[in-house]
């Protein structure tokens, strides 16, 4: 398959995964805010930091309240990190890929895009918001299902997986990074009555709460949550799981040594960390290091497979 084509497939998968992750994150945050006392410390601004768009938001000169942040992340087409912009980018990419995507998948993406764009204005209202975000996650999952059920396991499929899992691992680490900053240090955890609610929000942002309970059979506590999100081998949104999937699909590609090395280094790093004892600065340092590893994976893919800039 053409080098340019697989690059477009890779980005298509990343944009789709990004839209879905943003939807899950806003949904979970909206939910937990309702449980916290008025004036509590849980803020909306971190969501902007998670999506890496602080500068973009600052340019608008708005206070980071619920209304502004939700609009910015869902509906603002000029914010490249918004749901609408991610879906639009995914659709534009897919338009250049119609010859390699199953027709049913293209139609699903097209419907998905129109449905969200048509409903987005109404969906900003608090009472409609959950419904809109649900549509994003359900449509995105339907699309994944169509790919799984109708696409051959060829090079396009391999790069769909690579894009999806790298974006997902990246998002999981970002959510931990930003949300852990506002959580108390381990020693003080017992004193904050909302500590466990906040960790539950982290889990729910990643749709991980139920699987955490099922898999860990213990209360929601810092070290255990971090271990689950970073290292669980069964949960499909944990960093370790994503790295493992990427390693598996890479078996189908030639010249994969550099990317496989980067993946192995990332996994090793995650495996060594002593999670329970980390104070917030140490945890942030750990996540920074994880992000450096993810960047190396991306650089390996781009350097090996994508067309050299001519």
């Amino acid at each position: 398959m053409l080098a340019r084509t697989v690059e477009n497939v890779y980005w298509l998968a990343r944009y789709l995964e990004r839209a879905e992750n943003i939807a899950r994150m806003i949904s979970a945050t909206s939910n937990v805010v309702l449980d916290l006392p008025r004036g509590s410390t849980l803020q909306w601004a971190p969501l902007i930091t998670i999506t890496g768009s602080d500068a973009e938001f600052a340019r608008r000169g708005l206070a980071a309240d619920e209304r502004a942040v939700v609009h910015f992340l869902i509906a603002d087409a000029s914010n490249p990190g918004s749901i609408v912009a991610s879906l639009s980018a995914a659709r534009e990419n897919a338009r250049t890929l119609r010859e390699v995507l199953p027709t049913a998948a293209w139609e699903q993406l097209n419907r998905f895009y129109h449905e969200v764009v048509d409903e987005v204005a109404a969906g900003l209202l608090q009472r409609n918001r959950f419904d809109l975000l649900k549509r994003v996650t359900v449509n995105s999952q339907a699309l994944s299902g169509l790919f799984d059920g109708t696409a051959s396991r060829n090079d396009a499929w391999t790069f769909l997986q690579l894009g999806r899992y790298l974006e997902r691992a990246d998002m999981t680490s970002r959510i931990i990074d930003v949300r852990s900053a506002e959580l108390a240090r381990p020693s003080a955890a017992e004193e904050d009555p909302y500590e466990s609610i906040k960790w539950m929000n982290v889990l729910k942002s990643l749709s991980a709460y139920q699987m955490y309970r099922l898999g860990r059979r213990t209360r929601v506590a810092r070290g255990e949550v971090l271990d689950f999100l970073l290292r669980d081998g069964q949960f499909p949104r944990s960093c370790a799981f994503c790295l493992r999937q990427m390693t598996l699909v890479l078996g189908a590609l030639p010249r994969a040594a550099q990317v496989l090395d980067a993946l192995a280094a990332a996994s090793r790093y995650l495996g060594q960390a002593e999670l329970g004892a980390l104070d917030p600065p140490a945890l942030q340092q750990l996540i920074d290091e994880v992000q450096v590893h993810f960047s190396a994976v991306h650089a390996g893919l781009a350097g090996t497979y994508f067309p050299a800039a001519r």
Partner: peptide, 24 residues
Amino acid sequence: GCELVEGRDLVVQDDDCVYMQTIR
């Protein structure tokens, strides 16, 4: 079931044949 290519994906090499840059 053909590749859709642009000019920048193709190269005419020294043997005067046309090639496209694939990941393989």
